[in-house]
Each structure stands twice: as structure tokens, then as C-alpha cells.
Design a protein around this nucleic acid. Structure first.
Lengths: 125, 125
DNA sequence: GGTTGACCTGGAGTGCACTCCAGGTGCGAT
DNA sequence: ATCGCACCTGGAGTGCACTCCAGGTCAACC
């Protein structure tokens, strides 16, 4: 049990590619990660926790640029907690709306399915 | 009250651009629409209804290629109702999963917000 | 009869988030 | 020693869904 994860382990854990990890680093979403003597990345638990949140935000539609802003706030230290809250609250609100829209659209789709099924039964007589 | 809508009216009703409408037509999602003598498009109620469903499916993440497949089934006539049902049921299932994932992620984000708020209260002492 | 505005065309361009490439390094196992 | 493999680099390429562009047509209104 080592104190860090290798790129392969991180990629497997979050189901992202090695390239995506490097992309996040280049984009400033993950700060430059520690390296071994041979230059290989070593992901510490702080990196892994940030990545966990990053993936959560990405999967819910936050763009890379906003993620970068958020990561910058974290790096800037504890004085930025209010701003982080604002950012997350805003995202949460958008996400709530998005889920509502998707749910409404889903009902529409289910209505269409029911309609098609009614057609099928009628013609099956 | 005319029997058709102009491109501008359709664009306004569905909040899409004139270009998007043309794009859907080029992509085979909307079949070639009726034209006036001067070449302007005229959207009949059948076109508008299809577009309504198309937008619903697009907003819920169905790719253009699948939408094209679906539109082709509609054009192929009533014999394809079973296939249309299959396609919509599959999409509905994926959408259900997606909503669940988003909802779970949202709880994670809300947990993070609560955590940050607890930090803020502690430091405010 | 000139101007305006909504519309027309084919094709090129955009933004996003990756994803791939070619060539190179280090290291444990055979 | 040499093989295979996981990793490294900068930079180019990809796929998707639009979105924009330049130049043109047409009907209506002043």
C-alpha cells in the first residue's frame, strides 16, 4: 500500500484515459502533479480527491473553464471558501433545472411510446 | 391563421436558429420541406410535430444519427411502429439512467456545499 | 423604383473535450 | 542484454452539433 497512485491506477479508478488526465493537467484543472525520479506522475490523495470532485462536476456538465476557475480557488487557499460555495450552488441550481427538464422530456417520450403502443394494438385487432 | 409556419416562426417556437433547421434538413432529420413559389420553406403541422419530437429527443441527448434513423422509420410508414417503439424505449432507459446518475452526482455536490458551509461556520467563531 | 427584411444557397469555420501520434525513457522480468 | 510495458513529451487530429459567411432572390412598403 503506497502513498500515491500511478496514472494507470487513477485512470482505472475514475474510468478516464491517461490522455484525459494529462489534458486536465494542461488545462489547469489538476495542478502539476508530483513526479517520481524518472518523471512518472504520482497522484497523492489530495489529487485523487480533487479529481473525484472534478469528475463529478464534469459529468454534470460543468465546462472545463469553470472547473479551472474552481480548481484555482482551491489552490488559492481557505479564504476562497465562500466563492467555492457560490460556484457550487450556482452549478447545483443549473443541474436541478436540467434534471427537471430531462424528467419532463422523458414523460413526453413515454407518452409517445404509449401512443405508438396504442396504435399497434389497434392494428393488431 | 395560415396552414403552415414560416422558418422564422418555427425557429422562434422551438428556440432554434434558422441554420439549425436547415442543418436538420441536410442531415435527413427533417425531410425536404415544402416550398413556396419563391423557394421559401413552409412548415406544415406534420413537420412541426416531428420537429417537436426531434427537439425533445435531442435535448435528452439523442445524437443526430439516431434521430435520422428514427425519422427514416417514420417516413417508411406505419409498418415501422414496432421499431420506433424499440428505439424510444431504449432511449428512455438510457435517459432514466442518466437522470439517476445526475441525481446521485447532485447529492454529492450538495454534500460538498454543506461541507464548505461547515468550514465557514467553524472559522467564523 | 429603391430599400428593407426575411429568406435562399453551398461551403467553410467554430468550440468543446477529448484522443491520437511518433518517438523516446526507465525498469523489472526472462 | 533485451524484451515488454507503463510511462513520458509536444503537437496534431477527431467528432459532434451546430454556426457563420458571402453573395443572391423576392415581395412589400414608402
Amino acid at each position: 500500500m503506497s502513498e500515491y497512485l500511478t496514472p494507470g491506477e487513477v485512470a482505472a479508478r475514475f474510468d478516464v484515459s491517461h490522455d484525459t488526465l494529462r489534458y486536465y493537467e494542461r488545462a489547469g484543472v489538476l495542478s502539476a502533479v508530483e513526479r517520481s525520479a524518472s518523471g512518472h506522475r504520482r497522484y497523492r490523495s489530495a489529487d485523487v480527491e480533487l479529481l473525484d470532485l472534478v469528475r463529478c462536476l464534469r459529468e454534470t456538465g460543468m465546462p472545463i473553464a469553470a472547473l479551472r476557475t474552481f480548481a484555482d480557488l482551491i489552490r488559492a487557499g481557505e479564504g476562497t471558501v465562500d466563492e467555492r460555495i457560490d460556484l457550487l450552488v450556482e452549478h447545483d441550481a443549473q443541474l436541478g433545472e436540467r434534471i427537471e427538464v430531462l424528467t419532463a422530456r422523458r414523460r413526453h417520450i413515454q407518452g409517445k411510446i404509449a401512443y405508438y403502443r396504442s396504435l399497434r394494438e389497434t392494428s393488431a385487432d
